[in-house]
């Protein structure tokens, strides 16, 4: 939106963190720092990335997992300082950018094929 203002770009750049490249369809482990009272601990949220949004420092991604039979989705700010690290555990082959159709699938049908070829936007 404000991509043409150099000062704002600089502010956003300063906010951004080094994150591994991953795509929609990949399975990731998100190590998220959680505050419980005074204590801080790290919770790992493991699931499939079903959506990524752009927006510079405000970019987010959504991870979906099925936890004891209930579908759970969490939206993470990509550059949040609370994210300790992101691990990519599997790369899925998908043909669209928003995997909302996974919500209607369960069990074996909700699996994604492993992506074989490495595509250009991965380093």
């Amino acid at each position: 939106m404000s991509g043409s203002v150099p000062e704002i770009d600089a502010i956003e750049q300063a906010q951004m963190r080094e994150r591994p490249t991953f795509r929609v369809g990949d399975t990731v482990n998100v190590h998220f720092r959680i505050r419980e009272g005074d204590k801080e601990r790290i919770q790992v949220f493991k699931g499939v990335v079903i959506r990524k949004t752009k927006g510079g420092a405000g970019a987010t991604f959504t991870v979906r997992k099925v936890s004891s039979g209930v579908g759970v989705e969490r939206i993470f700010p990509l550059h949040s300082p609370r994210i300790e690290k992101i691990e990519v555990t599997a790369r899925g082959h998908v043909r669209r950018s928003r995997l909302y159709y996974l919500r209607n699938l369960r069990g074996k049908k909700a699996r994604l094929r492993e992506r074989q070829r490495q595509t250009s936007d991965e380093s």
């Binding site: 939106m1 404000s2 203002v5 000062e7 704002i8 502010i11 956003e12 906010q15 720092r33 505050r35 510079g56 420092a57 405000g58 700010p77 550059h79 949040s80 300082p81 609370r82």
Partner: peptide, 14 residues
């Protein structure tokens, strides 16, 4: 006015 953006506080709040 330069425009709007968002920043993270140290505790991760936006």
């Amino acid at each position: 006015k330069l425009g709007n953006t968002q920043i993270f506080l140290d505790d991760g709040e936006v």
